[in-house]
Design a protein around this nucleic acid. Structure first.
Lengths: 260, 260
DNA sequence: GGCTTCATCG
DNA sequence: CGATGAAGCC
């Protein structure tokens, strides 16, 4: 089973690229982030015509996640609050979480907040959001032993996940508190799919649109697949496909594919 | 001498098309309207590199006119108020007028207000603006006997200048009061360069972006060259070049070229 | 309805 | 740099 994650930075702008990529890469589930569209405007039919089942959780202009699955998914759930019933509803104002089960495997598709700048209000929100995510995962792990949690984490966990040395005190996506929050989550029992197969630096999934970052490979590895034990052990491959980033009008992120 | 007028609907968006058109059409003066850019952001150097002298009169987001001249121009003047010293300054809030002399010929480049809808406040402004234009021309005619007044007039003077019969009571760009205001101006001694050579309908310079107007040639002839007597008599040709309207991301107007 | 600004976000 | 939405024009 092949599971891909791709922050497309607007599904409507990127639809042609996503469709052609999906035609060439026969993935079973494609997890999209930053769809940036309300559900009524999501281009469903083109995925249905390709034989995919589509589960969406979007909003206007910002955020938005979707699951594009060859097989119908079961136990699909959107947002945190359907799982954490006592959680304040405001945690679902931003559409960043969708999950469903296919072949006994729970796929969790996440768009973690960016956090803007260390110390900012948005940074606090990111850290709190990661704490909520942890409790969310604790609940799901009670029912589902096999989980693939993937998406745009907006966190580079190790220094080799960044093209240059950064200040881990002040650099968003690399600061120690957010790294620590993610490590606490991984301690629940997740392994990094990409690092099972590749321990080298220079592998990135996001390059800033500005300053020609992609040409110089000035990237960050912030899009991840985290797998629970059994899935991690049986994983066959995990790689970043940088080819869509070379096209005209690309997303700033490249898709990442794990095979289990 | 070849004088072109072209409403480019943003010089920055259309720069590539304007430059390549200018390279292929060796005009002496190119009169631009709707440059939509403040003077500090106007792309001057690319015109200078082609050997053109550039005179600009722009504002943020709306309106804006420019003269692109092979020869340096003399007696360049922007707006109405430099010529009509007692005129209220508000008449230069919208940047719609620029003029200069080349080879003893005064080129006046105009972007006449559209007027929105007959009877609206903008319509009243259009009629008043045309009255001011008349007094402006009366002054210039005292000093310059040879004048080419060109630009986007937002007026189709005759029924054959429109692809279909319209209601001349209510149709903006065709209503009797605005046609009459323009006729009063032409009575000062101007002839329509295009009509010296072509008395046929079906010749248009503007096609609405909507409803595939260009494909069906549902156009209007609203971009004109008006010439004083001597120039009118010696004019060698006047034609509309519809080829740029066929490109991707075109202006909704085509350039018009007169040779004198 | 097409298109181009601008402001905001990442 | 590139996305969106709102406003204004035609």
């Amino acid at each position: 089973m092949k599971i891909a994650t791709w922050n497309v930075n607007s599904i409507r702008t990127r639809l042609g690229q996503v469709i052609s990529w999906l035609g060439e890469n026969n993935v079973d589930v494609l997890c999209l982030q930053e769809t940036k569209v309300i559900d009524t405007d999501f281009p469903l039919t083109v995925f249905h015509d390709m034989g995919y089942n589509t589960y969406i959780y979007g909003q206007k202009a910002y955020n938005g996640v979707a699951l594009i699955s060859r097989q119908p998914m079961k136990s699909v759930s959107t947002g945190f609050c359907q799982v954490l019933e006592n959680l304040e509803p405001k945690w679902d104002d931003q559409k960043r979480v969708i999950t469903g089960i296919v072949d006994e495997v729970r796929i969790i598709n996440l768009y973690v907040p960016n956090g803007s700048a260390v110390g900012s209000e948005k940074y606090q929100y990111k850290l709190q959001w990661l704490a909520v995510l942890k409790t969310y995962l604790e609940v799901l792990l009670k029912c589902n032993s096999d989980i693939i949690m993937c998406g745009d984490f907006n966190i580079a966990l190790e220094d080799i996940d960044i093209y240059k040395q950064v200040d881990t005190e002040n650099q968003i996506m690399a600061s120690l508190p957010e790294r620590q929050a993610l490590r606490e989550i991984l301690k629940l029992g997740f392994g990094d799919g990409f690092r099972k197969f590749n321990s080298q630096g220079g592998n990135y999934s996001w390059w800033d649109y500005r300053t020609g970052a992609f040409k110089r490979n000035s990237g960050w590895r912030i899009d991840h697949h985290y797998l629970t034990d059994v899935l991690y052990k049986q994983a066959k491959s995990c790689f970043i496909d940088i080819s869509p980033r070379k096209l005209e009008q690309p997303s700033d992120h490249a898709p990442v594919i794990v095979e289990v």
